Amino acid sequence: MSSNSITNESDTFEIGDSTVHRLGFGAMRITGEDIIGSPEDEETAREVIQHAVDCGVDLIDTADSYGPAVSERLIGEAIGDPDDVLVATKAGLLRNSEGDWIAHGDPDYIRNQVLTSLDRLRTDTIDLYQFHRPDGDTDFEDSVATFAELKDEGFVDGVGVSNVSAELLDQAREQVEVETVQNRYNLNDRGSREVLEICDDEGIGFIPWAPINGDDLAEHGDLLDEIADDHDATRRQVALAWLLERSDVMLPIPGTSDTEHLESNVAASQLALREEDVQRLTNAAE
């Protein structure tokens, strides 16, 4: 598909009081290698963020652990706090120099992190604040209660959870209105099928992370290539278009550090798959 005049043409979805296009942008890859430290060219990273907005992307997802701190800072520097872009961030993971991801849902830590995220994102209120991962050393309900309190206190507008089971999602919803769930989900990895069904039934946004993971796409490469050839598209565009067709609450956030790759991802919102294409892809990993 051509990259000329690329505009986000995905349908819209309401997250709290905000209406966003369902195809968003994941800002994990604008950091350094292994998601540690700054990228080689910070100006290019800021240009990618701004270009996403210019292409009509109004849902940007990040986390305090991306860098750590780097992704949030670059977003704040690139776009500040525009009224027409929803910036979602997450707390609940620690990083170290080896690149490990360490669950840490202690309420005092979360309260500290919201202040640092507000500063880096250059905002007074975080649009969507997500609990990044349940912590085996901290009671899940205590962690979620902290997010609920931050909402009541005006630090955040909406609360989301990530990497949760159906049972944990139910527990979270007993304490706070859950705007979104962010779990791994793509053409080949559908382990969160039950959680997606709950989100479908309840109108909760479902943000699939690793939406176009290369290894997962390779499992169905022949089928993706066949459909892509029919539409003059790429296999990644087909996989993204399938996600958008899969559910009205699906909010894919493909990430990249390259403007050309960004445009290719956004162009997937213009790809109209045939009903038979969608069904074949849906059946591929059932």
Rank of each mutant, 00 (worst) to 15 (best):
D108A: 15
G105Q: 10
V85M: 01
Y109I: 01
D84Q: 09
K90G: 02
D84L: 15
K90N: 05
A88T: 13
D83Q: 15
L86P: 15
E98S: 11
H104M: 12
A88S: 15
D83L: 04
G92H: 14
D81Y: 02
P82R: 07
D81Q: 04
N96A: 07
G80M: 05
P107N: 12
P107F: 03
L93Y: 01
G92F: 11
I102N: 02
W101I: 02
V87N: 03
W101D: 01
P107L: 06
I102L: 09
G99K: 03
V85H: 02
G99Y: 04
D81T: 09
P82D: 04
D100M: 00
L94G: 08
S97D: 15
D84H: 10
L86N: 07
R95H: 11
H104Y: 15
G105P: 12
V85T: 09
D84T: 07
P82E: 11
A88N: 13
A103P: 15
G105V: 05
A103D: 12
G99P: 10
A91C: 14
D83P: 03
I79D: 08
R95F: 07
L86M: 14
I79P: 05
E98D: 15
N96V: 05
D81P: 02
V85D: 01
H104E: 13
D108R: 15
T89F: 06
N96H: 07
S97W: 13
G80L: 03
I102R: 00
S97Q: 14
A91S: 14
N96P: 13
V87C: 10
G105E: 12
P107K: 05
I79T: 10
G80E: 03
T89Q: 08
N96R: 06
D83K: 10
H104P: 02
I102D: 00
V85L: 05
V87P: 15
L94S: 06
D106M: 01
L86Q: 11
E98Q: 10
E98W: 03
Y109K: 02
K90D: 04
L86T: 13
D100S: 06
L93C: 03
P107V: 07
L93A: 04
G92T: 14
V85W: 05
